[in-house]
Design a protein around this nucleic acid. Structure first.
Length: 114
RNA sequence: CGAGCCGUGCGGGCGUCCGCUGCCUGAUAAAGGGAGAGGAAAGUCCGGGCUGCACAGGGCAGGAUGCCUGAUAACGUCAGGUGGGAGUGAUCCUAAGGAAAGUGCAACAGAAAGUAUACCGCCUCCGCAUGCAUGUGCCGGGGCCAAGGCCUCCGGCCGAGGCUUUCAGCACAUGGGAGGUAAGGGUGAAAUGGCAGUGUAAGAGACUACCGGCUCUGCGGUAACGGAGAGCGCAUUGUAAACCCCAUCCGCAGCAAGUCCGAGAAGGAGCCAUAUGGCUGCCCGUCAUGCUCCGGGUAGGACGCUUGAGGCCUGCGGUGACGCUGGCCCUAGAUAGAUGGACGCUCACGACAGAACCCGGCUUACAGUACGGCUCGCAUU
RNA sequence: GGCCUUGUAGUCAAGCGGUCAAGACGUCGCCCUCUCACGGCGAAGGCCCGGGUUCGAUUCCCGGCAAGGUCA
């Protein structure tokens, strides 16, 4: 996953939680903040209460797929942090995609693809 | 057909597109090829490899194991066997050494809980008391008193049968005392072998048979142990997953182990050949920047990292665990951590669940499903 | 990933092979008060789960589950 633009540093997470904008949906919470870079990055957070490692990892994979699949409609230069909520465990991927795009628009970082 | 026991497996499949992590070809690009989670990857309960530290040898402390024999690198694992327990059976369970080395504990109940004891009961003895009858009667109550008894007081009873002419009494009964006994009773988780008989005043391994136990001898077995004979009337309760004793084993830590490279900054040494600045206007000197070198080592990178007590198949040895020979195969290696998304077909409609140094076990979770062996019952032949 | 520790009532907790598992705060009821608080009296409520050893387990042993700590 060397080439995947993920957020790794605790400092970046704390900055997003403290200063970023926050939107909530049924499946997850999305924090967004400008990062001053030329690309957008993704950070994923799943607590131990969410489930066992299979379920937590499954959420992370689907988040990465969402981020990858919608990268051409996302404005660059932002840090996006996704926090898992319990409802998403049993949810369908297409429903998650819907919610994800809705939150992108809510944060005003949605961009019509070229 | 029904009920059940044991063992060995599988853990959706096929295909297309996009995406992810290594590997290979290619030139380090583009592109292509091929590989990519489990039976438990889990818990971290044991054992081993590996790595660092410590270490002459031995002991103490501490910990673990605990029927026997074997397998293994090792084990608390496995195999075969022995004893005990459960089940009609297939089969299953079993921390199963030592209690006459010592210490501790055994609540309540019970007479007694470990140097045994004697509550009830049973039995024997006693010139100890009372009773043994129509009375000087017995029992209960009341009154008087000089405390020994007494009373025309009141109520109830005669319950008693044998011997002696009567008295005194005897037998006998009740109580008391002195003993015997451990059969029986009740308590308890547990009561000093069990059960039947003989015997006795009543009893008792006091004696006898059977069962159990202990000791000795010899036989079978590598052994645990088995079974046989003889002897001992039986002593020494249980508890060691209580302390402990005995035997065997264990040095400590863990891949966040450890090894290598190592920017920058700081530190040390050297050089004034060159340049700038300060002390100082000039020279020398010196300091800083500078240049060179050095050790430690941060960020970071690399190794450890996957070919191994490896897997599959055949043959041989062994009851088996397992071992040996030969052939074939290479089967994840990430580093905030790789398996996701979409679609089609299909079936039993998919449980528990995600590698992080590796391996052997154990334990725990698990939708369903396949195969093999065996037992019991019923029916038919 | 490795290594440790702890689970007792709603909360904080003591305890130990034995009859009945202390105590405090909290809860409930009654009394006190004009009412509340304080105070007094009383009550309910518990050994994380499953096996084993033992006559007997909250305690000892084994296995789970949960919570917490620590190591770069």
């Amino acid at each position: 996953m060397k080439n995947f633009p993920s957020i790794k540093k605790n400092e970046d997470f704390r900055r997003a939680y403290r200063e970023g904008r926050k939107k909530v949906s049924r499946f997850f919470v999305m924090y967004v903040i400008e990062n001053g870079l030329s690309i957008s990055r993704l950070g994923i957070s799943t607590s131990k209460k969410y489930g066992n490692s299979i379920e937590r990892h499954h959420f992370q994979r689907r988040m990465r797929e969402l981020f990858r699949a919608s990268s051409d409609v996302t404005r660059t230069g932002y840090d996006i942090i996704m926090v898992a909520r319990n409802e998403s465990r049993q949810s369908d991927f297409s429903q998650m995609k819907e919610e994800y795009l809705k939150l992108l628009k809510g944060h005003d970082i949605f961009m019509e693809s070229k």
